[in-house]
Amino acid sequence: MSEGQRFEARVLPHLDAAHNLARWLLRDAAAAEDAAQEAALRAFRYFASLREGEDAKPWFLGIVRNTCYTQLARQMGRAEITGLDEGDWDELAGAADTPEPVQVLHEQRERSAVDAALRALTPPLREVIVLRELEDLDYRSIALIAGVPVGTVMSRLSRARAKLKELLTLAGLP
């Protein structure tokens, strides 16, 4: 099996998850496609760093996440995202949000409320929810992807949940 075939077999099954994460982080359809494709290119280059038997999903999503954060940093006019503390994200919130087409009338009330609440979170909080609830990853994998300790993942999840409950209750759910 060539390296390309092994890459296809191990990494590309997670392309849907990669695109989902990019779409939720960047909130823009075209930017998410570009980021997922660029991440796949990088992943192929660093494929040797994925060990035999290691789960490829968190490994690949970590690359996707870094690609997206580089993109977000560019939007904010920063060269590096690492120096940002969580408060800095507030200035980005709203600024880069691409408005969704107005299908709200035909869609379920739950979907639009849940999506809006998720979009209202800052990226560090949004990513832990997307990875935990939509991608069903465990704390250790999420910590690996976000590059933070497990304790930080847990505290972010708890803050994200509190914020989501508040927003969803305001929207009249459940």
């Binding site: 390309g4 392309l15 849907d16 997922a36 192929f44 979907r111 849940v114």
Partner: peptide, 29 residues
């Protein structure tokens, strides 16, 4: 958790993206 899992939008990769990545991988390989 139930609300999120049942109602949040999921964005799988498009056919176009799947094809583009497969082509890119083949070329790089």
């Amino acid at each position: 958790s139930r609300l999120l899992r049942e109602h949040a939008s999921r964005h799988p990769a498009s056919e176009r993206l799947h094809a583009a990545v497969r082509t890119q991988t083949a070329l790089q390989s």
